[in-house]
Design a protein around this nucleic acid. Sequence first.
DNA 1: TCGGCCGATAGATAAATGCTATTAATTTTG
DNA 2: CAAAATTAATAGCATTTATCTATCGGCCGA
Lengths: 297, 297
Amino acid sequence: MIDKLEFLLALAREKHFGRAADACGVTQPTLSAGVKHLEEQMGVLLVKRGSRFQGFTPEGERVLEWARRIVGDSRAMREDISALRHGLSGRLRIAAIPTALAMVAAITTPYRDRHPNVQFTIYSRTSLEILELLENLEIDAGITYIGNEPIGRVSIVPLYQEHYRLVTSADAPLGDRDSVTWAEVSQVPLCLLTPDMQNRRIINRLLKSAGGESRPTLESDSMILLFSHVRTGRWASVMPEKIAQTLGLTEPIRAIPIVEPDAVQTIGLVVPQREPMTPTTAALVAEARRISSSLAT
Amino acid sequence: MIDKLEFLLALAREKHFGRAADACGVTQPTLSAGVKHLEEQMGVLLVKRGSRFQGFTPEGERVLEWARRIVGDSRAMREDISALRHGLSGRLRIAAIPTALAMVAAITTPYRDRHPNVQFTIYSRTSLEILELLENLEIDAGITYIGNEPIGRVSIVPLYQEHYRLVTSADAPLGDRDSVTWAEVSQVPLCLLTPDMQNRRIINRLLKSAGGESRPTLESDSMILLFSHVRTGRWASVMPEKIAQTLGLTEPIRAIPIVEPDAVQTIGLVVPQREPMTPTTAALVAEARRISSSLAT
DNA sequence: TCGGCCGATAGATAAATGCTATTAATTTTG
DNA sequence: CAAAATTAATAGCATTTATCTATCGGCCGA
């Protein structure tokens, strides 16, 4: 029964019977039969059938929600029992927005000191992708913007505030200033994240409300790429304060506070709303709370 | 997998492999094998094995909690989907404390008007039994005292306040009064519920704190029995106001308010904490809220 | 219209589930 | 204290269920 529900989850992810079957480690006919069996049990069609996968029926969507919960709980149960016997172990899958990646080490490092048998997989994703991965039980936790876009059945721990800096060479335009305005920043050619990233959308909004426009000379979905350009001293970018600090800026590169407004975004840890949480996730939340309170001081 | 978890739940209820198997509609070896299979999956012993059932290991208790949730959700899913297609249907199992039994009709009647395809099973149970039945998924809702003894993972809707009356004949001692005190009541021979009922324990406490003692001439676990005695005019009892009203008192029987203190107990609907609830349970909660607000005016 | 992709179907096989009958270990009873 | 009864585990067998390989039929794009 639970296996069949996993089939359905895979199908929702992959939107393709063959790939979903692969993901479950079974053949396509097996997955087909599994879904059909579910449909017989429920007495309703769950999947819109054509010669292609055409999405779920309304009933299918509903079953999908229950499936997420039931499958999630059944995995949580296994982990819970395993933790009772062997202490915390297993793999913690986390996805973070690129601008928060540098902060991840601040959580994982003390976590591993406490629980050395837990392994990590960290993905760099957009904030929307993170919520989708959480929904589909593909990650255990996300680190993303909170308080802006509406989010689903999740628990949230605020981590830190994101303040913005113009990162540029001291001899470049504006490079000698102690602070700059968003209006001034909008006049400078920038390296920015691609527009599918929420960070970019936030910066766009700030530039626009300052009467400017975002015409980035260079876009990328990788903070490392942006940073490496900035370090040459020949490019400028807008980055969160924390990541600029963490990556380490050296002369003649400066990180200049941007004001009017001194925009703030809150970044937080997001985990599935489940009571009780899996032991590894609960420990992650505990770690996040520690960080949060230590940064608040 | 889910079936095996149901085996475990049955075992927790029956504390006996054979009876648990019966309850699941399988033979004892099948249930034994099922539990063993679970233990292999989890890599832990779940049940303390002797030649008798000796309870669960700590890990077993933990699995049991998860099992309650997973099995509950899987049933809720089925009902949810069925309700999408056929409207509300099925059977709603409710247990109520005896003193609240008369109130049940106030919920079931408007409920049936709205959802004629739902059938009811109503049990009369003690407040403790009700909580246990809820835990074990043997009922969908309880009507019991709230706010006194601690209760587990449940949602609560207050229904009404229980005020106490001395129910007695007009020509019996105290029968001519407009109100009596608990101290006075303690001097009268009474018909009361048996001491396993919380109502009786509450009354005992009230009598005791008024310096009296409860020496009931007659005890029963059935309100009907108490009521039929009182109606003869030869017996007295202490009953909640609501039930005395509902059952209908005729001359020369009177229901006299008991004061010092004017003790109050809150009765409420109690359902498993599950998000979303099963459709039939959600409708019951809605009905309870209507009652609650109509009585509050 | 043809080739390729996708999901359903058929048939064979492996795995699981569940039953009856029996055994082993206790506990109860006479 | 021995016989009977109770309880859960085990063995062996039958049935059902799950899964695989191979193949078919529909649909889309070239």
